[in-house]
Amino acid sequence: MSRMTMIQAIRDAMDVKMGQDEDVVVFGEDVGYFGGVFRCTQGLQEKYGRNRCFDTPINESGIVGAAIGMAAYGLRPCVEIQFADYVYPAYDQIVSEAARLRYRSAGDFTAPITIRMPTGGGIFGGQTHSQSPEAVFTQVSGLKVVVPSNPIDAKGLLIASIEDDDPVIFLEPKRLYNGPFDGHHEQPVTPWSKHELGEVPDGHYTVPLGKAKVTREGSAVTVLAYGTMVYVAEAAARETGIDAEIIDLRTLLPLDEETIIASVQKTGRCVVVHEATLTSGFGGELLSRVQETCFYHLEAPIIRVAGWDTPYPHAQEWDYFPGPARVGRALVKVMEA
Protein backbone atom coordinates (compact mmCIF):
# COMPACT_ATOMS: atom_id res chain seq x y z
CA MET A 1 0.00 0.00 0.00
CA SER A 2 1.12 3.56 -0.69
CA ARG A 3 -0.26 6.97 0.16
CA MET A 4 -1.37 8.56 -3.07
CA THR A 5 -3.29 11.52 -4.34
CA MET A 6 -5.70 10.87 -7.19
CA ILE A 7 -3.07 12.26 -9.56
CA GLN A 8 -0.49 9.79 -8.30
CA ALA A 9 -3.00 6.94 -8.43
CA ILE A 10 -3.85 7.73 -12.05
CA ARG A 11 -0.17 7.93 -12.93
CA ASP A 12 0.45 4.67 -11.11
CA ALA A 13 -2.33 2.97 -13.09
CA MET A 14 -0.66 3.95 -16.38
CA ASP A 15 2.74 2.97 -14.99
CA VAL A 16 1.44 -0.48 -14.03
CA LYS A 17 -0.16 -1.06 -17.42
CA MET A 18 2.79 0.30 -19.42
CA GLY A 19 5.03 -2.02 -17.45
CA GLN A 20 2.84 -5.04 -18.07
CA ASP A 21 1.76 -4.49 -21.65
CA GLU A 22 4.08 -3.13 -24.33
CA ASP A 23 1.05 -2.26 -26.45
CA VAL A 24 -0.06 0.42 -23.99
CA VAL A 25 0.97 3.87 -25.22
CA VAL A 26 0.25 7.22 -23.58
CA PHE A 27 0.06 10.53 -25.40
CA GLY A 28 -1.60 13.92 -25.50
CA GLU A 29 -0.78 17.61 -25.18
CA ASP A 30 2.12 18.23 -22.74
CA VAL A 31 1.89 14.61 -21.61
CA GLY A 32 5.44 13.57 -22.52
CA TYR A 33 8.53 15.37 -21.26
CA PHE A 34 6.62 17.75 -19.01
CA GLY A 35 4.42 15.01 -17.50
CA GLY A 36 1.06 16.66 -18.05
CA VAL A 37 -0.35 19.97 -16.86
CA PHE A 38 -1.77 18.10 -13.85
CA ARG A 39 1.34 15.86 -13.48
CA CYS A 40 -0.70 12.73 -14.25
CA THR A 41 1.96 11.34 -16.61
CA GLN A 42 5.05 12.59 -14.78
CA GLY A 43 8.03 10.32 -15.28
CA LEU A 44 6.38 7.98 -17.76
CA GLN A 45 8.36 9.20 -20.75
CA GLU A 46 11.59 8.95 -18.83
CA LYS A 47 10.75 5.40 -17.75
CA TYR A 48 9.25 4.01 -20.97
CA GLY A 49 10.80 6.15 -23.67
CA ARG A 50 9.43 8.56 -26.26
CA ASN A 51 8.03 5.68 -28.31
CA ARG A 52 5.57 4.85 -25.52
CA CYS A 53 4.76 8.25 -23.99
CA PHE A 54 4.90 11.40 -26.06
CA ASP A 55 3.66 14.93 -26.68
CA THR A 56 1.21 15.64 -29.48
CA PRO A 57 0.27 18.64 -31.57
CA ILE A 58 -2.68 20.61 -30.16
CA ASN A 59 -5.37 18.79 -32.07
CA GLU A 60 -7.95 16.76 -30.16
CA SER A 61 -9.41 15.11 -33.24
CA GLY A 62 -5.87 14.17 -34.24
CA ILE A 63 -5.15 12.69 -30.82
CA VAL A 64 -8.25 10.50 -30.79
CA GLY A 65 -8.13 9.72 -34.52
CA ALA A 66 -4.51 8.60 -34.30
CA ALA A 67 -5.39 6.50 -31.25
CA ILE A 68 -8.14 4.74 -33.19
CA GLY A 69 -5.69 3.96 -35.99
CA MET A 70 -3.19 2.62 -33.46
CA ALA A 71 -5.90 0.49 -31.88
CA ALA A 72 -6.79 -0.88 -35.31
CA TYR A 73 -3.14 -1.89 -35.60
CA GLY A 74 -3.27 -3.65 -32.24
CA LEU A 75 -2.05 -1.13 -29.68
CA ARG A 76 -3.93 -0.08 -26.55
CA PRO A 77 -3.66 3.72 -26.45
CA CYS A 78 -4.47 5.68 -23.30
CA VAL A 79 -4.73 9.28 -24.45
CA GLU A 80 -5.34 12.54 -22.66
CA ILE A 81 -7.54 15.49 -23.55
CA GLN A 82 -6.17 18.33 -21.45
CA PHE A 83 -9.62 19.45 -20.24
CA ALA A 84 -12.97 17.79 -20.88
CA ASP A 85 -14.06 21.25 -22.06
CA TYR A 86 -11.78 20.75 -25.08
CA VAL A 87 -12.98 17.32 -26.16
CA TYR A 88 -15.50 18.66 -28.67
CA PRO A 89 -13.14 18.81 -31.68
CA ALA A 90 -12.65 15.06 -31.13
CA TYR A 91 -16.36 14.35 -30.87
CA ASP A 92 -16.64 13.12 -34.45
CA GLN A 93 -13.79 10.65 -33.94
CA ILE A 94 -15.26 9.46 -30.64
CA VAL A 95 -18.90 9.13 -31.72
CA SER A 96 -18.65 8.27 -35.40
CA GLU A 97 -15.52 6.15 -35.23
CA ALA A 98 -14.34 4.78 -31.87
CA ALA A 99 -17.82 4.00 -30.58
CA ARG A 100 -18.99 2.31 -33.75
CA LEU A 101 -15.92 0.61 -35.12
CA ARG A 102 -16.63 -2.82 -33.64
CA TYR A 103 -20.30 -2.68 -34.65
CA ARG A 104 -19.87 -1.43 -38.18
CA SER A 105 -17.05 -3.87 -38.97
CA ALA A 106 -18.78 -6.79 -37.21
CA GLY A 107 -15.77 -7.14 -34.94
CA ASP A 108 -13.25 -7.02 -37.81
CA PHE A 109 -11.69 -3.93 -36.18
CA THR A 110 -11.99 -2.70 -32.59
CA ALA A 111 -10.99 0.42 -30.66
CA PRO A 112 -9.69 -0.54 -27.21
CA ILE A 113 -8.75 3.01 -26.30
CA THR A 114 -9.05 5.01 -23.09
CA ILE A 115 -9.62 8.75 -23.34
CA ARG A 116 -8.73 10.47 -20.07
CA MET A 117 -9.90 13.98 -19.40
CA PRO A 118 -10.06 16.22 -16.33
CA THR A 119 -13.66 17.27 -15.71
CA GLY A 120 -15.85 19.26 -13.35
CA GLY A 121 -15.84 22.61 -11.60
CA GLY A 122 -15.32 24.05 -8.17
CA ILE A 123 -11.89 25.45 -9.04
CA PHE A 124 -12.74 28.88 -10.50
CA GLY A 125 -12.14 27.39 -13.92
CA GLY A 126 -14.75 29.50 -15.64
CA GLN A 127 -16.50 28.40 -18.77
CA THR A 128 -13.84 26.24 -20.38
CA HIS A 129 -12.11 24.59 -17.42
CA SER A 130 -15.14 23.42 -15.46
CA GLN A 131 -17.59 21.59 -17.67
CA SER A 132 -18.99 18.13 -17.02
CA PRO A 133 -19.80 16.79 -20.48
CA GLU A 134 -20.63 13.18 -19.48
CA ALA A 135 -24.11 13.32 -21.01
CA VAL A 136 -22.70 13.90 -24.48
CA PHE A 137 -20.97 10.55 -24.11
CA THR A 138 -23.55 8.49 -22.20
CA GLN A 139 -25.89 9.07 -25.12
CA VAL A 140 -23.50 7.28 -27.49
CA SER A 141 -23.95 3.55 -28.09
CA GLY A 142 -20.64 1.74 -27.96
CA LEU A 143 -18.87 3.92 -25.39
CA LYS A 144 -18.23 3.25 -21.74
CA VAL A 145 -18.16 6.25 -19.40
CA VAL A 146 -16.30 6.20 -16.10
CA VAL A 147 -15.99 8.84 -13.34
CA PRO A 148 -13.87 7.94 -10.28
CA SER A 149 -14.16 9.82 -7.01
CA ASN A 150 -11.08 8.71 -5.03
CA PRO A 151 -7.51 7.43 -5.54
CA ILE A 152 -8.28 3.72 -4.97
CA ASP A 153 -11.11 3.69 -7.48
CA ALA A 154 -9.23 5.96 -9.89
CA LYS A 155 -6.34 3.51 -10.17
CA GLY A 156 -8.47 0.38 -10.29
CA LEU A 157 -10.97 1.84 -12.75
CA LEU A 158 -8.24 3.23 -15.00
CA ILE A 159 -6.45 -0.13 -15.16
CA ALA A 160 -9.80 -1.78 -15.91
CA SER A 161 -10.48 0.85 -18.60
CA ILE A 162 -7.12 0.35 -20.28
CA GLU A 163 -7.68 -3.42 -20.25
CA ASP A 164 -11.22 -3.09 -21.55
CA ASP A 165 -11.65 -3.95 -25.22
CA ASP A 166 -14.18 -1.17 -25.78
CA PRO A 167 -13.53 2.59 -25.92
CA VAL A 168 -13.73 4.21 -22.49
CA ILE A 169 -14.28 7.88 -21.68
CA PHE A 170 -12.45 8.35 -18.37
CA LEU A 171 -13.53 11.57 -16.67
CA GLU A 172 -11.29 12.69 -13.81
CA PRO A 173 -12.86 15.26 -11.46
CA LYS A 174 -9.92 17.64 -11.18
CA ARG A 175 -11.38 19.15 -8.00
CA LEU A 176 -10.63 15.75 -6.40
CA TYR A 177 -7.06 15.44 -7.76
CA ASN A 178 -5.43 16.52 -4.49
CA GLY A 179 -8.08 15.79 -1.92
CA PRO A 180 -11.78 15.13 -1.38
CA PHE A 181 -14.06 18.16 -1.68
CA ASP A 182 -17.51 18.42 -0.16
CA GLY A 183 -18.40 21.85 -1.47
CA HIS A 184 -17.37 23.75 1.66
CA HIS A 185 -15.01 26.04 -0.18
CA GLU A 186 -14.66 28.25 2.87
CA GLN A 187 -12.93 25.45 4.77
CA PRO A 188 -9.36 24.23 4.24
CA VAL A 189 -9.04 21.23 1.96
CA THR A 190 -8.07 17.89 3.42
CA PRO A 191 -5.37 16.20 1.37
CA TRP A 192 -5.73 12.55 0.28
CA SER A 193 -2.86 11.70 2.64
CA LYS A 194 -5.29 12.22 5.53
CA HIS A 195 -8.08 10.17 3.95
CA GLU A 196 -8.51 6.39 4.04
CA LEU A 197 -9.18 6.25 0.28
CA GLY A 198 -5.70 7.72 -0.24
CA GLU A 199 -4.21 4.39 0.84
CA VAL A 200 -3.79 2.74 -2.55
CA PRO A 201 -2.74 -0.87 -3.16
CA ASP A 202 0.56 -1.28 -5.00
CA GLY A 203 0.81 -3.04 -8.33
CA HIS A 204 -2.01 -4.39 -10.40
CA TYR A 205 -5.65 -4.49 -9.33
CA THR A 206 -8.90 -3.50 -10.98
CA VAL A 207 -12.18 -1.97 -9.97
CA PRO A 208 -14.70 -3.46 -12.40
CA LEU A 209 -16.48 -1.19 -14.88
CA GLY A 210 -20.26 -1.14 -14.59
CA LYS A 211 -20.32 -1.55 -10.80
CA ALA A 212 -21.50 1.18 -8.41
CA LYS A 213 -20.47 1.46 -4.78
CA VAL A 214 -22.60 2.33 -1.77
CA THR A 215 -20.42 4.86 0.07
CA ARG A 216 -22.87 5.47 2.89
CA GLU A 217 -25.59 3.05 3.88
CA GLY A 218 -28.89 4.59 4.85
CA SER A 219 -32.59 3.91 4.98
CA ALA A 220 -34.35 7.22 4.33
CA VAL A 221 -33.44 8.22 0.78
CA THR A 222 -31.15 7.08 -2.01
CA VAL A 223 -28.74 9.63 -3.42
CA LEU A 224 -27.29 8.86 -6.83
CA ALA A 225 -24.03 10.72 -7.34
CA TYR A 226 -20.59 10.50 -8.95
CA GLY A 227 -17.34 12.41 -8.89
CA THR A 228 -17.13 15.41 -6.56
CA MET A 229 -20.84 15.21 -5.76
CA VAL A 230 -20.30 12.03 -3.74
CA TYR A 231 -18.59 14.12 -1.02
CA VAL A 232 -21.11 16.91 -1.33
CA ALA A 233 -23.91 14.39 -0.80
CA GLU A 234 -22.11 12.94 2.22
CA ALA A 235 -21.79 16.42 3.72
CA ALA A 236 -25.46 17.14 3.03
CA ALA A 237 -26.51 13.92 4.75
CA ARG A 238 -24.28 14.72 7.73
CA GLU A 239 -25.53 18.26 8.02
CA THR A 240 -29.25 17.51 7.66
CA GLY A 241 -29.08 14.37 9.76
CA ILE A 242 -31.07 12.56 7.08
CA ASP A 243 -30.13 8.88 6.86
CA ALA A 244 -29.31 8.91 3.17
CA GLU A 245 -27.92 5.96 1.28
CA ILE A 246 -25.31 7.39 -1.06
CA ILE A 247 -24.36 5.54 -4.21
CA ASP A 248 -21.21 6.46 -6.11
CA LEU A 249 -22.11 5.29 -9.60
CA ARG A 250 -18.44 5.15 -10.75
CA THR A 251 -19.49 3.94 -14.21
CA LEU A 252 -22.30 5.82 -15.93
CA LEU A 253 -22.40 3.62 -19.01
CA PRO A 254 -23.10 0.76 -18.68
CA LEU A 255 -25.00 1.64 -15.54
CA ASP A 256 -25.20 -0.58 -12.46
CA GLU A 257 -28.98 -0.60 -12.31
CA GLU A 258 -29.11 -3.50 -9.86
CA THR A 259 -27.47 -1.52 -7.07
CA ILE A 260 -29.63 1.53 -7.80
CA ILE A 261 -32.90 -0.42 -7.90
CA ALA A 262 -32.14 -2.38 -4.73
CA SER A 263 -31.44 0.85 -2.88
CA VAL A 264 -34.42 2.88 -4.08
CA GLN A 265 -36.79 -0.03 -3.50
CA LYS A 266 -35.46 -0.09 0.06
CA THR A 267 -35.60 3.66 0.76
CA GLY A 268 -38.58 4.66 -1.40
CA ARG A 269 -37.02 8.02 -2.16
CA CYS A 270 -34.37 9.24 -4.58
CA VAL A 271 -32.29 12.36 -5.16
CA VAL A 272 -30.01 12.59 -8.18
CA VAL A 273 -27.09 15.01 -8.07
CA HIS A 274 -24.54 16.11 -10.66
CA GLU A 275 -22.49 19.16 -11.50
CA ALA A 276 -23.50 19.13 -15.14
CA THR A 277 -26.35 21.29 -16.37
CA LEU A 278 -29.85 20.04 -15.61
CA THR A 279 -31.64 19.84 -18.94
CA SER A 280 -30.91 16.60 -20.79
CA GLY A 281 -28.15 15.90 -18.28
CA PHE A 282 -27.35 12.36 -17.19
CA GLY A 283 -29.69 12.89 -14.24
CA GLY A 284 -32.62 12.77 -16.64
CA GLU A 285 -31.66 9.22 -17.60
CA LEU A 286 -31.18 8.20 -13.97
CA LEU A 287 -34.56 9.65 -13.10
CA SER A 288 -36.22 7.76 -15.94
CA ARG A 289 -34.68 4.47 -14.98
CA VAL A 290 -35.63 4.85 -11.32
CA GLN A 291 -39.17 5.85 -12.26
CA GLU A 292 -39.51 2.88 -14.63
CA THR A 293 -38.12 0.31 -12.23
CA CYS A 294 -39.15 1.61 -8.79
CA PHE A 295 -42.47 3.37 -9.43
CA TYR A 296 -44.49 1.34 -6.94
CA HIS A 297 -41.82 1.76 -4.27
CA LEU A 298 -41.54 5.52 -4.61
CA GLU A 299 -43.03 7.64 -1.85
CA ALA A 300 -42.04 10.98 -3.31
CA PRO A 301 -41.16 12.53 -6.66
CA ILE A 302 -37.52 12.09 -7.59
CA ILE A 303 -35.54 15.30 -7.26
CA ARG A 304 -32.56 16.36 -9.34
CA VAL A 305 -29.92 18.75 -8.05
CA ALA A 306 -27.65 19.89 -10.87
CA GLY A 307 -25.72 22.78 -12.30
CA TRP A 308 -27.97 25.53 -13.62
CA ASP A 309 -28.75 25.56 -17.34
CA THR A 310 -26.13 28.21 -17.97
CA PRO A 311 -22.53 28.16 -19.12
CA TYR A 312 -20.21 27.67 -16.14
CA PRO A 313 -19.56 31.15 -14.71
CA HIS A 314 -16.40 32.43 -13.05
CA ALA A 315 -17.23 34.91 -10.30
CA GLN A 316 -20.49 33.14 -9.43
CA GLU A 317 -18.70 29.81 -8.86
CA TRP A 318 -20.42 28.97 -5.55
CA ASP A 319 -23.84 30.09 -6.65
CA TYR A 320 -23.50 27.72 -9.58
CA PHE A 321 -21.81 24.68 -8.02
CA PRO A 322 -24.48 22.47 -6.37
CA GLY A 323 -23.02 22.54 -2.85
CA PRO A 324 -24.10 20.79 0.35
CA ALA A 325 -26.73 23.43 1.18
CA ARG A 326 -28.61 22.87 -2.09
CA VAL A 327 -28.31 19.11 -1.87
CA GLY A 328 -29.38 19.29 1.77
CA ARG A 329 -32.50 21.26 0.85
CA ALA A 330 -33.36 18.57 -1.68
CA LEU A 331 -32.94 15.86 0.95
CA VAL A 332 -35.27 17.73 3.32
CA LYS A 333 -37.78 18.32 0.54
CA VAL A 334 -37.86 14.69 -0.60
CA MET A 335 -38.38 13.56 3.00
CA GLU A 336 -41.26 16.00 3.47
CA ALA A 337 -43.07 14.91 0.31
Binding site: G65, A66, A72
Partner: peptide, 17 residues
Amino acid sequence: SGNLGTQYIQAVGWAMA
Protein backbone atom coordinates in the same frame (compact mmCIF):
# COMPACT_ATOMS: atom_id res chain seq x y z
CA SER B 1 -17.14 5.08 -42.39
CA GLY B 2 -19.77 7.44 -43.75
CA ASN B 3 -18.05 10.33 -41.96
CA LEU B 4 -15.66 11.96 -44.39
CA GLY B 5 -11.98 12.41 -43.65
CA THR B 6 -12.03 10.54 -40.34
CA GLN B 7 -10.01 7.60 -41.67
CA TYR B 8 -7.16 9.85 -42.89
CA ILE B 9 -5.81 10.57 -39.40
CA GLN B 10 -6.50 6.97 -38.40
CA ALA B 11 -4.18 5.88 -41.20
CA VAL B 12 -1.50 8.13 -39.72
CA GLY B 13 -2.11 6.61 -36.27
CA TRP B 14 -1.86 3.10 -37.71
CA ALA B 15 1.44 4.01 -39.36
CA MET B 16 2.68 5.52 -36.08
CA ALA B 17 1.80 2.23 -34.36
